[in-house]
Design a protein around this nucleic acid. Sequence first.
DNA 1: TATTCGCAGGCTTTAGAGAACATATTTTGC
DNA 2: GCAAAATATGTTCTCTAAAGCCTGCGAATA
Lengths: 144, 144
Amino acid sequence: MFSKACEYAIKASIYIAQQSLQGKCVNLKTIAKEIGSPEAFTAKILQELVKNNILKSKKGSKGGFLIEPKSVYTIMLSEIVYTIDGDSIYKGCGLGLKQCNAQKPCPLHTKFLDVRKNLKNILENTNLYELTNDLEVGISYLNR
Amino acid sequence: MFSKACEYAIKASIYIAQQSLQGKCVNLKTIAKEIGSPEAFTAKILQELVKNNILKSKKGSKGGFLIEPKSVYTIMLSEIVYTIDGDSIYKGCGLGLKQCNAQKPCPLHTKFLDVRKNLKNILENTNLYELTNDLEVGISYLNR
DNA sequence: TATTCGCAGGCTTTAGAGAACATATTTTGC
DNA sequence: GCAAAATATGTTCTCTAAAGCCTGCGAATA
């Protein structure tokens, strides 16, 4: 569904959001350990999220990554996914056709429209806070 | 969503089903051209479908692949997908966690369950005939 | 018996995933 | 203030698995 990079991006964002709400700034090493991702690869992904104003970064000792608390409520999953994976998840044809639309659909087009709408709806209406909260209360996990 | 191999498997099955209903047996070359897939790669995929009794093959001159007409109504998309991609599409965690279930869910688990159910439902309730029919009437396409 | 085909295995290419390393910037300890 | 440590940034390299290709073999039909 998502690329590995995107999976890490989502998990990292959730973790950073959780820590930021407690006023903490977390560094790369901690993030990678906490979400179970390769450190170097994670660095690249986080940079991309910084460039797109989803995360803030702070260099130097006691530095790391954070999300402004107010942003935790306004950043939607869809923004993170779009930053890393682009819009392939909405646009791409289920059967891999270059041109697949209502006019010239593949045989599964109509059926898949429904699944896509469902997914799009979830991504566009879920903010980081909601996910952070489940984590906080201990009813969801980021690794294992 | 699906692997390339699986996309080709679905498209090939639909095309073969359509031709089989007209009593025609089609060879690899024709199939590959018709669905826009690489010939050698397609060969492997078709072999896999034969092994799993989704397609029949006929060797020698005038040979090729076919589907028994009665099977066109009973073969569901889910069988084709399972043969090529296994059950990753149902089981895999949206965030790539090894262990992600109702007891220890990832933060998106519940939300994704819905999308998965939707998809599973489509695959298990769509037979080849239905897809063949749309193609026949010219309201859907397998290439471009 | 020659030709047309599927079958089988291995080889090559490509793109995603991950690693390594050098650089730049900020804080901290003295 | 200054050196040193801690940290993000940026570039390039390597690994790996999916995707795609090649070549020879064997069966069936005309």
